[in-house]
Amino acid sequence: MDLFIPALLTIITAATPLLFAALGEMVTEKSGVLNLGVEGMMVMGAIVGFVAEYYSGSATMAIVASILAGAAMAAIFALLVLEFHASQVPTGLALTIFGIGLSALVGQSMIGIAYEGLPKISIPVLSSIPVIGPLLFQQDFLVYLSIVMVAAIHYFLNKTRAGLILRAVGDSHDAAHAMGYSVVKIRFMAILFGGAMAGLSGAYLSLAYSPMWIEQMTAGRGWIALALVVFACWRTLRVLLGAYLFGGISILQLHAQALGIGIPSQVMSMLPYLATIFVLVIISRDVSKIKLNAPASLGRAFHPSR
């Protein structure tokens, strides 16, 4: 029991950044755009949030700054892909390379500065439930927000007209265009949303998960988030499941040492990456399943012909 509770707590903290980023990317992909720059947007969210916290002393300001940083990065991507007709794959890669470089530049004076972490919010009544109460209902704001976002995005995509239009644009941009929807505008919004969510994910990393700045602290989480979207077959609730599953895998390294398992920490650190490959293989080998679930226009450039 005394190992179980901290384990569950760390699963939540490890899963939350993945959840934000994967949810955002899923919405972007639902609109038919593959943004491989998640890692770059996330790392910019992390450093900008941290810098904003440092200078303003306000956690709210920090989170807002992270959202804006992620969205600003996404705006560069959107501009290149939608207005300059650049291919999505190299543009996403460029975003990641640029984000890693720029965050290192911005963050050079932030190395070694510590932050006490986002304040925890207890939910009245629920947090007084024995054992699981303090566990589940005494988290920081972002953890709650990530769960709220799952519900909100699930509702938006499946129950609202706007969500339907977004999916239509992703499944057939030509048909959506013919019906009079502005493909470019809708995709722009979806890309910005994905960037904002990646920014939030970065904020969680530098303000809550390990409240400090380390260069490239995202450590591939942006890429894992991309894989999670495939794993989830572009379904919101499965993204939640996948994020917590990966949260569980990535905390094994923390707890293996506590259990006295004599495996080098680097080998345990490989686990999330190996697990990502494993689930990709499991999901992707069924080609028809991917074809059925992936947005049909995903990754394809849109040129209005009339």
Partner: peptide, 26 residues
């Protein structure tokens, strides 16, 4: 100057290249 400038410059170069490439088809 921090070495990170190199990474920023490399990223910018690829961005501007992808943007300039629009002139190949348009």
């Amino acid at each position: 100057l921090p070495v990170a400038v190199t990474g920023v410059f490399q990223g910018l170069l690829l961005f501007f290249l992808l943007a300039s490439d629009v002139l190949i088809h348009y």
